[in-house]
Deep mutational scan, measured.
Amino acid sequence: SKICLVCGDEASGCHYGVVTCGSCKVFFKRAVEGQHNYLCAGRNDCIIDKIRRKNCPACRLQKCLQAGMNLGARKS
Rank of each mutant, 00 (worst) to 15 (best):
I51N: 06
C7K: 00
G17A: 06
V26P: 02
G8Q: 07
S76V: 04
N70A: 14
K2L: 06
G8W: 03
V26G: 12
C24L: 02
C64Y: 02
A11Q: 11
S76W: 15
V18Q: 05
A41N: 08
I48V: 11
S1C: 11
G22Q: 04
V6E: 00
L61P: 01
C4W: 00
C46R: 01
I51R: 12
G22I: 03
N70R: 12
G22V: 07
Y16C: 09
T20M: 04
V32A: 14
C7I: 01
H15S: 08
L5I: 07
K29C: 05
R52P: 08
D9I: 04
N44P: 02
V26L: 10
Y16W: 14
S1E: 14
C4I: 01
K29E: 06
A41Q: 08
N70G: 07
F27T: 01
G72A: 08
L65M: 09
Q35T: 08
I48H: 04
G72E: 11
F28V: 03
N55I: 13
I48E: 13
V32F: 12
G34N: 15
G17N: 05
G72I: 12
K54F: 13
C59V: 01
G8N: 03
K2Q: 15
Q62P: 00
R52D: 08
M69K: 03
R53M: 04
L39P: 08
V32Y: 06
G68W: 02
E10L: 11
I51Y: 15
N37S: 10
C56R: 02
G22C: 04
E33H: 08
R74C: 13
Q66L: 06
N37L: 08
G34F: 15
K54R: 07
G17Q: 08
R43N: 12
S23R: 07
Q66P: 01
S12F: 04
E10V: 10
C21F: 02
I47D: 08
E10A: 09
A67V: 09
A67F: 05
C40F: 00
C7R: 00
H36E: 13
A31R: 01
Q62D: 07
I3Y: 11
T20A: 08
V26N: 05
C7H: 01
A67E: 15
V18H: 02
P57A: 10
A67T: 14
N44Y: 10
A58W: 06
Q35M: 05
Q66S: 14
D9E: 07
I48D: 06
N55T: 14
V6D: 01
K75R: 09
C40A: 01
R74I: 10
N44L: 04
C14H: 13
V26Y: 13
V19I: 07
M69R: 02
C4Y: 00
N70I: 12
D9G: 09
M69E: 03
K29R: 12
L61A: 03
V19T: 06
E33M: 10
I48Q: 12
A67M: 15
G72H: 15
C7A: 00
G13W: 03
S76I: 04
N44V: 03
G13S: 11
I51T: 13
D9T: 07
G13V: 07
C14S: 11
L71S: 02
H36K: 05
C59H: 02
L65P: 02
C59A: 01
Q62M: 14
R43W: 08
